[in-house]
Simulated scan of single mutants.
Amino acid sequence: MIFDASRMLSFDLETTSVNPREAHIVTSALVRIDGHEVDKREMLADPGIEIPEAASKIHGISTEQARAQGRPHAEVLADTVQAIKQGWKDGLTLIVYNAAYDLSVLRALTGDFTVTGPVFDPFVIDRVMDKTRRGKRTLTEVSKYYGVELGNAHEATADALAAARVAWKQVRQRFPQLAQMDTDALMEFQAVEWYKDRVSFKKYLEGKGRDASDVSTAWPMLG
Rank of each mutant, 00 (worst) to 15 (best):
H73P: 06
A108H: 07
A83E: 12
V148L: 04
R133L: 05
G151Y: 02
R174D: 09
Q82I: 10
P72Q: 05
F120M: 08
V76G: 05
R174K: 08
Q173C: 08
T114M: 13
P176E: 09
R127V: 00
L150D: 02
V115M: 14
Q82W: 11
Q170P: 08
A160K: 07
V128L: 09
V166H: 00
A162W: 03
E141A: 12
S62H: 07
D102Q: 12
P176I: 11
W168Y: 15
A68D: 04
A158E: 10
L77D: 09
R71S: 15
Y97S: 10
T63Y: 01
A167M: 03
K89N: 14
G70V: 00
A160G: 06
Q170E: 10
T132C: 07
R137N: 06
N98Y: 14
A167T: 03
V148M: 00
G91V: 07
T132P: 00
A99I: 02
A108K: 01
I84C: 01
Q82L: 14
T183D: 11
E155A: 13
A78P: 11
Q82E: 15
L106C: 13
T183P: 02
L109N: 02
T183C: 13
I84Q: 03
V119A: 12
L103S: 04
Q177V: 08
P176D: 09
E64H: 02
D182K: 05
A156V: 03
Q82R: 15
L77T: 09
